[in-house]
């Protein structure tokens, strides 16, 4: 057994999975509360990556940043979270709220339409070219040269930062949903919107906040993706959105811990498939979606999904 390879693949898969998990959280939170598949979510992630990139370059990075690396990252993450959060609120207010009582196919088609709208607006606004964060050149390359380098095992500091940032956000989100009034209200709306409204909860306000938080997480995921995997382009939300959606379904769509675990599951599955299966890199996506199908057949509600409560 090549342990270095196993650990390397685990780190690779965990980093990728952390990004998928952050995307999956938005899908899952929105589905949990509205039973809506927000296909525009992957494109919100793309916008987050662009916001981070523009802050990054505006502050002179990678070669001559005008602030410290820590401040730079915090500014990028903050701006992407705020920008994408507001975008999410806008999407909910103008795209989905008018269709709240429409047949379910209407918001679904709207979600697809919004996805193309955002994607092509980005093409129009930012151009078709790939933007490269080139964090390899930031801080004299220390973010990638520092870390654990032991025989064949190489875990860069940047990967550690991405995993840590994602973990902190997931813990914070779990605490937020469990203990804050808004978190409790969101759980109440998810369980039964009408009953929650009768108890005085402003469901529209709660839904708007859920969109804000889910989209902010997607924006942060976009920045984390950019600083680690470099390339930012208008089409990047499509595949990432699909993977995030797969993670949400595998974890049990509607479940926050499920989305986190689903993300890690998909990331690790991708990494191990490439590392250990014959022609693994060729069929990387096949394995991910094979897992999705297998999960749907064996456990349709996903790892943490709950059965629908049906009234007699």
């Amino acid at each position: 057994m090549d342990w270095a390879k196993l650990v390397q693949l685990t780190v690779d898969g965990t980093t990728l999975g952390a990004v998928y998990a952050l995307i999956a959280l938005g899908y899952s939170m929105v589905y949990g509360i509205l039973k809506l598949l927000n296909f525009a979510h992957g494109d919100v992630y793309m916008i987050g990556a662009f916001i981070g990139y523009f802050i990054y370059t505006a502050l002179g990075a990678p070669l001559t940043p005008s602030v410290s690396v820590v401040a730079l990252f915090l500014l990028m993450l903050g701006a992407a979270a705020l920008g994408c959060g507001l975008l999410g609120v806008g999407i909910e207010r103008f795209g989905y709220r008018p269709l709240r009582n429409a047949p379910r196919i209407a918001p679904l088609i709207t979600a697809l339409g919004l996805s193309f709208l955002i994607q092509n607006s980005a093409l129009l606004a930012f151009g078709a070219g790939f933007r490269n964060y080139d964090t390899f050149a930031l801080d004299n390359g220390r973010l990638f040269s520092l870390g654990i380098h032991f025989h064949a095992l190489n875990v860069s500091l940047m990967r550690g930062i991405v995993i840590l940032a994602a973990a902190v956000l997931m813990v914070a989100l779990t605490g937020f949903i469990r203990w804050t009034p808004l978190g409790k209200a969101s759980r109440a709306v998810a369980a039964d919107r009408e009953a929650a409204e009768m108890m005085g909860i402003d469901a529209d306000r709660v839904i708007a906040w859920i969109f804000f938080i889910g989209s902010a997480l997607a924006g942060i995921a976009g920045v984390l993706f950019g600083v680690l995997f470099q390339n930012v382009f208008h089409y990047m939300g499509f595949v990432a959105g699909l993977k995030g959606f797969t993670a949400a379904v595998v974890g049990g769509i509607g479940s926050v811990p499920g989305a986190m675990l689903g993300g890690l599951f998909v990331g690790l599955a991708e990494s191990y498939a490439v590392g250990y299966l014959p022609q693994g890199s060729t069929f990387e996506d096949l394995w991910v979606f094979f897992i999705l199908i297998a999960m749907m057949l064996l456990r349709p509600r996903g790892l943490f999904g709950q059965a629908d409560v049906r009234r007699a």
């Binding site: 390879k5 390397q8 693949l9 690779d12 898969g13 980093t15 990728l16 790939f130 064949a152 993706f225 995997f229 390339n231 990047m236 595949v239 990432a240 991708e270 990494s271 191990y272 490439v274 590392g275 022609q279 693994g280 890199s281 060729t282 990387e284 996506d285």
Partner: peptide, 30 residues
């Protein structure tokens, strides 16, 4: 080997490159 055109991370693929390889040929579109 092949990688997907949609791939955004090659870490696992690179981990798999056999030791002793002295050249990598990547005629990608992008």
């Amino acid at each position: 080997s092949s990688v997907s055109q949609n791939a955004t991370d090659y870490s696992a693929t690179i981990t798999n490159i056999p030791s002793g390889t002295d050249l990598v040929y990547t005629p990608f579109t992008n």
